[in-house]
Amino acid sequence: MKRRQIMRYAGVGLLAAVGAGLSSSFASSLAQAGQSVTVQYFGHTCFLFTGGGVRILVNPFRSLGCTAGYKPPKVASDLVLISSQLLDEGAVEILPGNPRLLYEPGSYQVNGRQIQGIRMDHDRLGGRRFGVNVAWRWKQGGLDILHLGGAAAPITTEQQILMGRPDLLLIPVGNGPKAYGPEEAKQAIDVLQPKIIIPTHYLTKAAAKDACDLVPVDNFLTLMKGTPIQRAGSSITLSRASLPKTGSIIQVMNYA
């Protein structure tokens, strides 16, 4: 029943955002040119991106399993992108207000802003266990952003073409049955060559429950030895000036 409720909500939200068009206030916000984007971390793969007059929330969750220790991200947003309809990446019914919602792969024109949803497998069995994962690519605050959601399969040539070379890559690194482990994440990074890397979907103190089968971010950082690492709190503001002139940097964010 819960899954059906989420799918019903998603269908209504998608029609409101794409079929019926956006509200004039949201449309004008999207048209504003922002020079930076603030990234706020809510745990697991959930982030809020604020910049250019718009707030984009990715992968709100329910507090259960590996997200049991995190507070539900009940934050205001204009647009919500979800990578799957599992409850750790698609609990849209918890959100306040009536944000617009995209949840399926495809290319969307949202009043001049292109948002690309890229279909990937959410497990290592061709999607037979956990279905489809949607990786999201868009531009905001002058940055080309790619959020891989719960990617579990290697990136194909076709997917790489759609993903391009992101300025900011959010990538799962904590392993488990439905997302990259450290080695798989490194392989994806070698393919995409991003400028800033934010690890997601790993074990934290908030997520350290018996039901959680993730590994800590340090496993990934050890594997990426030689790549500069910066640490921040739960929020960071980035601009083109933040980008390294050569190579990549890893930005580790902490759950508040």
Rank of each mutant, 00 (worst) to 15 (best):
M1G: 14
A17Y: 05
V18T: 04
G19W: 03
A27D: 10
S28Y: 14
S29R: 15
S29N: 15
S36M: 04
V37L: 03
V39S: 05
Q40Y: 03
L48W: 02
L57A: 07
P60R: 03
F61C: 09
S63Q: 12
G65T: 08
A68P: 08
G69D: 03
Y70Q: 00
V75N: 03
V75R: 02
A76L: 06
D78N: 13
L81N: 01
Q85E: 15
L87H: 14
D88Q: 11
A91P: 00
G97K: 04
N98H: 15
L101E: 01
L102M: 09
P105W: 00
Y108H: 00
Q116A: 06
R119D: 11
D121N: 13
H122G: 10
L125G: 12
G126F: 14
G126M: 12
R128F: 12
G131Q: 09
G131Y: 12
A135K: 06
A135V: 06
A135H: 11
W136Q: 00
G142F: 11
L143T: 04
D144N: 15
G150R: 06
A151Y: 09
Q159Y: 08
L162Q: 13
M163S: 05
M163C: 12
G164R: 05
L169Y: 02
I171Y: 00
P172H: 01
K178V: 08
A179L: 13
E184D: 15
A185L: 05
Q187N: 13
Q187V: 13
A188C: 09
L192I: 02
Q193E: 08
K195A: 07
T200C: 03
K205E: 11
A206H: 07
A208V: 10
D210N: 14
C212N: 15
L214K: 11
V217F: 02
D218I: 08
M224C: 14
M224A: 12
K225V: 07
P228I: 07
R231M: 14
L238R: 03
L238T: 04
L243K: 03
L243G: 04
K245G: 11
K245D: 12
I249C: 12
Q251S: 13
M253L: 14
M253N: 04
